[in-house]
Design a binder for these strands. Structure first.
Length: 889
DNA sequence: ACCGCCGGGTGCC
DNA sequence: ACCGCCGGGTGCC
């Protein structure tokens, strides 16, 4: 059982609803009567659906016949309807109809009826029919081959092709169908980020899909009728436009950026969204133009956490009995975060035996916090990519205090919310403002998470009124072809938005290995999807082609003197922490623990980094204790250490300190407080209040690491210098980034750099915007005399910083968060980098640093375990993977 | 429906 | 004439 299957089993209906598990148990020709009373028409070879009509006043056995568009065609003749009604009502079989000929008849027409059911129902069905004088035969191969009357008698269509054949067939098709998706489009001026070529292509494609007046995919106009080339259906009415589609680019290709560009670039009539300039231009809105952006967990963690994950964690020694089943997702996350935090603390102290020593009785807080973090990320993206002098009205429809005003929502340019909020509003019938607005555009971020059509959130999504609809997803098919059905349903791509037709035309043929079915699926997906992977090629060139990235770990041995000092600090630290354990106050003394850790890490880098240790003074009054701890944690943060927020597990943003001396991102902890009646600290369960949160004052320049005459080197600095000197000797043009979390360490490194005549520059969080830009510019300039080394603080600057001039990165000290290190490397290993990038990580042997590396790995494993990133594949799964690979989705 | 069925008109050849 | 036959009216469930 894979995790995704477990989830699927939890949520999906079974048995009767899976037609692919049914077999054809017989068929018979019947008659559709009463044609002249209804408007529904059919074509030769077209499928019809049979619907029981128990309320019919003339015959409670009535079986109504409808065409693909749901228009009634007629009824099944009453004699036949009688046994059929019994079979249908008792779920003995599904009956499907195809009209083989006589499509122009005025009064009645034949219909080939095919009965599908489980083998065990075969006799019951046959007997029931026989009792009414009907004999089921096998003369029709059934609706599987509805699509061509010419071949409907042939048997050769039931060919089960091998996956190899499938792939070949697909590749061929793919070439034929490759439409031009390479046209580029410039975004509106309000977008300040330069789009990459493939993003401009996506923008162009999305824009054309929104503005096009063309018929929806697969429709053609033929002599006054609208003809669906995919299905052979024809209708008189022009089919409804499908404005939108699926943007299924791989992770990291910038789906969000492209969508933001689309939002501002394609408003009405292909014109950009009129944005408020600083100079105030009047915004005239002709109709509701709000865009709903629905987002869920971050891309990497798209698998919801199910109760099975909790069980896994349980196996690691954690009691999960307090976790209610109804919200396993949220609680799983939370549990996960807390565990992570504990792991880090204990393991880094070599106290692994205390691993999960304690656990919180109550983990029901902060249920929604993680969502906030994701939403916050998206808002950040808007801020990052939209020019600062234009105002986009973005409303975060989230949290208990969200304003449920249709008017307010209608006035926004963008409304962000989560699937949870949407469905909880939708559940409270008649009071869902999101469902009362006519949106211009609805975008489902990570749209594949909405995949079970029976789930409330799916229904809520489907009920949204919108002109244009988009699905963003790196993996639109998560688990089964059915996932796609939900997406078609959302896009209102007729007739696939109705389960029966989706099943009969696509789902069943494909699962049975029918190649025409597969072809149709391909055409269908291709027509509405833009999908590129990192390996996709544009005009023969890789979409994103990056040079190699190699990581080396260089172990550093401390000198005897350094080792002595280190051991002494470690012993002291263990003593103090050991006492906290005995007292059971480890979490209340969190700040102290952190401070000890930071000191150890600093010793690994350079003894001169370490601030004078004040010792674990006996606390006086509780207030004094708090003050003491707050000072301590401020010290930790001031050192530049990359601490994590225990709620979002990411690097701290706008850090605040609680009275109980725990540090969180302000938005994260505020959300916790908001969502709880009696807010408690996630780490120690002390009561917390918003007004008691203490702002972290921000990085201050620390007085004097000894950079003057007292300067001495350290083993790590020596290791760095020998690397740099060797590099310079080999190739003087090579540029390097020297990265540390401790800004004062950077001060210290400056000394030998100067001494050896290196030209260097520096970038850290304390620098003014202007100075930073200058530093980057100088460094990027390759002309002689410009710096070849940049001292970079791990968290300096936004994601956008471009340091491609560097091809070597020296990570001076490990971070808690591997992602932070990766992001840092990304600043030079990105588009524009021409050389291979070599990353050297210095790790001090037998030290807290080695433990941190272990933790990084463990954390990765835990993440994988919890989110099922690496899951074993069984056969069904493998089949799914195959299809997914074939479809390139 | 160029059918079937119903029910009124009609009634030797 | 309590039938047969004719031909008009009519027609899903």
């Amino acid at each position: 059982m894979t995790i995704s299957q477990e989830i699927a089993n939890l949520t999906e209906d079974s048995g009767q609803d899976l037609p692919e598990e049914n077999v054809q148990i017989g068929s018979i020709q019947g008659t559709v009567v009463g044609l002249r009373y209804y408007t529904g028409t059919v074509n030769r070879g077209e499928m019809v659906s049979l619907v029981r009509e128990p309320q019919n006043p003339y015959d409670r056995n009535a079986v109504m016949v409808a065409n693909v568009y749901g228009r009634q065609v007629g009824h099944i003749k009453k004699e036949l309807a009688a046994p059929m009604a019994y079979i249908m009502d008792n779920n003995l079989a599904r009956v499907e109809g195809v009209v083989p000929y006589g499509e122009t008849n005025k009064f009645s027409m034949p219909v080939n009826l095919t009965f599908w059911s489980k083998e065990e129902n075969r006799d019951a069905v046959h007997n029931q029919m026989r009792r009414h004088g009907f004999k089921l035969g096998t003369e029709f191969k059934g609706s599987l081959i509805w699509y061509s009357t010419k071949t409907s008698l042939g048997r050769d269509l039931l060919i089960f092709v091998t996956s190899y054949q499938l792939k070949n067939a697909f590749d061929k098709l793919f070439d034929d169908l490759m439409e031009d998706k390479t046209r580029e489009m410039e975004p509106a001026e309000a977008v300040c980020t330069a789009l990459l070529p493939h993003q401009k292509q996506a923008l162009s494609w999305m824009t054309s899909r929104e503005n096009s007046n063309d018929l929806p995919p697969f429709w053609e106009e033929k002599s006054g009728l609208y003809f669906n080339v995919l299905t052979n259906f024809a209708v008189k009415e022009r089919p409804e436009k499908v404005l939108g589609g699926i943007l299924a680019d791989d992770m990291g290709l910038g789906k969000t950026l492209t969508t933001i560009a689309l939002i501002v670039s394609n408003f009405h009539n292909g014109k950009p969204l009129p944005l408020e300039q600083i100079t105030m231009c009047c915004r005239t809105l002709t109709h509701t133009i709000v865009i709903l952006f629905i987002c869920v967990d971050h891309e990497e963690s798209c698998e919801p956490v199910s109760s099975s994950h909790l069980k896994r964690l349980h196996a690691d020694g954690v009691s999960a009995d307090t976790i209610e089943e109804d919200a396993p997702q949220k609680k799983g996350w939370l549990l996960f975060c807390v565990l992570m935090q504990c792991t880090l603390l204990f393991e880094s102290l070599g106290l692994a035996r205390f691993f999960f020593f304690f656990f919180f009785k109550e983990v029901s807080y902060a249920q929604n916090t993680i969502k906030t973090v994701v939403l916050k990320n998206i808002i950040d993206q808007f801020e990052q990519h939209i020019r600062a002098d234009v105002t986009l009205k973005v409303y975060l429809y989230y949290g208990a205090e969200r304003k449920r005003s249709v008017k307010l929502l209608s006035e926004q340019d963008v409304v962000l919310t989560t699937y949870n909020v949407l469905s909880s509003d939708f559940g409270n019938k008649a009071n869902s403002p999101l469902h009362k607005v006519n949106w211009l555009r609805v975008v489902l971020d990570e749209g594949h998470v909405v995949r079970n059509p029976n789930a409330l959130q799916s229904k809520a999504v489907l009920e949204l009124q919108s002109e244009r609809r988009w699905i963003l997803s790196g993996t639109p098919i998560q688990n089964s072809l059915k996932d796609l059905y939900m997406l078609m349903s959302f896009l209102k791509l007729k007739p696939f938005d109705v389960k029966e037709w989706w099943s009969r035309i696509i789902q069943r043929p494909v699962t049975m290995g029918d190649r025409v079915g597969l072809k149709n699926l391909q055409v269908l997906v291709k027509g509405i999807t833009l999908r590129r992977t990192k390996n996709s090629k544009v005009a023969g060139r890789m979409l994103v082609q990056l040079p190699e990235r190699r990581v080396f770990v260089q172990h550093v041995t401390l000198s005897e003197e350094e080792r002595e000092e280190y051991e002494q600090v470690r012993k002291e630290g263990r003593k103090i922490i050991g006492r906290y354990f005995e007292e059971g106050t480890i979490m209340t003394n969190y700040a102290d623990v952190l401070a000890i850790l930071v000191r150890l890490r600093q010793y690994c880098c350079h003894p001169g980094l370490v601030a004078k240790y004040t010792g674990a003074d006996d606390p006086g009054t509780p207030n004094e204790l708090r003050e003491h701890l707050i000072n301590k944690i401020t010290l930790v943060l001031n050192s530049g250490s990359d601490e994590e927020c225990a709620i979002c597990l990411d690097s701290l943003r706008q850090p605040v300190i609680t009275y109980c001396a725990h540090v969180y991102c302000r938005p994260c902890i505020c959300e916790v407080i908001r969502s709880e009646k009696q807010a408690r600290c996630p780490l120690c369960r002390a009561q917390i209040k918003t007004r008691e949160l203490v702002e972290y004052p921000g990085e201050e320049m620390q007085a004097g690491a000894a950079t003057g005459e007292n300067w001495r080197s350290s083993s790590k600095v020596d290791a760095l210098m020998s690397n740099l000197l060797k590099l310079r000797q080999e190739d003087p043009t090579v540029k390097s980034l020297v990265v540390s979390q401790f800004t004062r360490f950077m001060d210290l490194i400056e000394v030998p750099l100067r001494e050896y005549g290196f030209s260097f520059t520096r970038l850290d969080g304390t620098m003014a915007q202007k100075t930073r830009a200058k530093a980057i510019q100088d460094f990027q300039d390759s002309s002689p005399g410009n710096p070849t080394i940049m001292l970079l603080s791990l968290k300096a600057g936004g994601v956008g910083i471009n340091l491609t001039a560097a091809s070597h990165v020296f990570m001076m000290d490990p971070a808690w968060n591997p992602a932070a290190e990766d992001q840092c490397v990304d600043r030079c290993h990105r588009l524009g980098q021409s050389r291979d990038v070599v990353i050297t990580k210095f790790i001090v042997k037998d030290s807290v640093e080695e433990n941190m590396v272990k933790i990084q790995k463990k954390k990765q494993e835990l993440v994988e375990k919890a989110f099922g990133v690496k899951k074993p594949m069984d056969l069904k799964q493998a089949r799914m993977e195959e299809i997914r690979a074939l479809m390139e989705i």
